[in-house]
Computed example of a mutant assay.
Amino acid sequence: MESAADACRQGNLQRIKSLPDSELQRLLSKTDEDGRTLLHAAASGGNKDLFQFLISKGAGSNVNLADEEEWTPLHSAVSAGHTEIVQLLIALKADVNAANSSGQTPLHYAVSKGRIPLIQILLQAGAKVNARDATGSTPLHRACSAGRLDSARALVEGGKARLEAKDASGATPMGVAASCGDQTMTLYLLSKGADPEVEDKEGETPLSMAAKHGKLRDLMVQVATGQMDVDEIL
Results as ranks from 00 to 15, higher is better:
residue 139 P to C: 09
residue 139 P to E: 07
residue 139 P to V: 01
residue 139 P to Q: 05
residue 139 P to M: 08
residue 140 L to P: 00
residue 141 H to P: 04
residue 141 H to Q: 09
residue 142 R to V: 08
residue 142 R to N: 12
residue 142 R to D: 11
residue 143 A to E: 06
residue 143 A to R: 06
residue 144 C to L: 10
residue 144 C to M: 07
residue 144 C to E: 00
residue 144 C to T: 03
residue 145 S to E: 07
residue 145 S to K: 01
residue 146 A to H: 05
residue 146 A to V: 06
residue 147 G to Y: 02
residue 147 G to P: 01
residue 147 G to L: 04
residue 148 R to K: 13
residue 149 L to S: 04
residue 149 L to G: 01
residue 150 D to H: 03
residue 150 D to R: 05
residue 151 S to D: 10
residue 151 S to R: 04
residue 152 A to L: 03
residue 152 A to E: 01
residue 155 L to P: 00
residue 155 L to I: 01
residue 155 L to W: 00
residue 156 V to W: 03
residue 157 E to W: 03
residue 157 E to N: 13
residue 157 E to M: 13
residue 158 G to A: 13
residue 158 G to E: 13
residue 158 G to H: 11
residue 159 G to H: 05
residue 159 G to A: 07
residue 159 G to C: 09
residue 160 K to I: 00
residue 160 K to L: 12
residue 160 K to A: 14
residue 161 A to M: 07
residue 161 A to G: 04
residue 161 A to V: 05
residue 162 R to I: 06
residue 162 R to M: 12
residue 163 L to Q: 11
residue 163 L to P: 08
residue 163 L to Y: 11
residue 163 L to R: 11
residue 163 L to E: 13
residue 164 E to T: 06
residue 164 E to D: 15
residue 165 A to S: 15
residue 165 A to D: 12
residue 165 A to M: 10
residue 166 K to V: 14
residue 166 K to T: 10
residue 167 D to G: 10
residue 167 D to H: 09
residue 168 A to W: 13
residue 168 A to P: 04
residue 168 A to D: 15
residue 169 S to A: 15
residue 169 S to M: 12
residue 169 S to H: 11
residue 170 G to K: 11
residue 170 G to S: 13
residue 171 A to M: 15
residue 171 A to C: 15
residue 171 A to N: 15
residue 171 A to K: 15
residue 172 T to S: 11
residue 172 T to R: 07
residue 172 T to H: 04
residue 172 T to F: 06
residue 172 T to A: 09
residue 173 P to Q: 12
residue 173 P to T: 08
residue 173 P to E: 12
residue 174 M to I: 15
residue 174 M to S: 11
residue 174 M to F: 10
residue 174 M to P: 08
residue 175 G to I: 10
residue 175 G to T: 11
residue 175 G to D: 13
residue 176 V to G: 03
residue 176 V to C: 06
residue 177 A to D: 02
residue 177 A to G: 10
residue 178 A to R: 09
residue 178 A to I: 13
residue 179 S to Y: 03
residue 179 S to N: 09
residue 181 G to F: 06
residue 181 G to E: 02
residue 181 G to P: 01
residue 181 G to V: 07
residue 181 G to T: 05
residue 181 G to H: 02
residue 182 D to Y: 06
residue 182 D to V: 01
residue 183 Q to M: 15
residue 183 Q to D: 12
residue 184 T to Y: 07
residue 184 T to L: 14
residue 184 T to V: 15
residue 185 M to S: 01
residue 185 M to C: 05
residue 186 T to E: 08
residue 186 T to I: 12
residue 186 T to H: 11
residue 187 L to T: 00
residue 188 Y to T: 03
residue 188 Y to G: 00
residue 188 Y to I: 02
residue 189 L to W: 02
residue 189 L to A: 06
residue 189 L to I: 06
residue 190 L to F: 12
residue 191 S to N: 09
residue 191 S to P: 03
residue 191 S to Q: 04
residue 192 K to L: 06
residue 192 K to S: 08
residue 193 G to F: 10
residue 193 G to N: 12
residue 194 A to Q: 04
residue 194 A to V: 02
residue 195 D to R: 14
residue 195 D to V: 06
residue 195 D to S: 14
residue 196 P to Q: 13
residue 196 P to V: 10
residue 196 P to D: 14
residue 196 P to G: 13
residue 196 P to I: 14
residue 197 E to L: 13
residue 197 E to R: 15
residue 197 E to D: 15
residue 198 V to R: 14
residue 198 V to W: 12
residue 198 V to E: 15
residue 198 V to N: 14
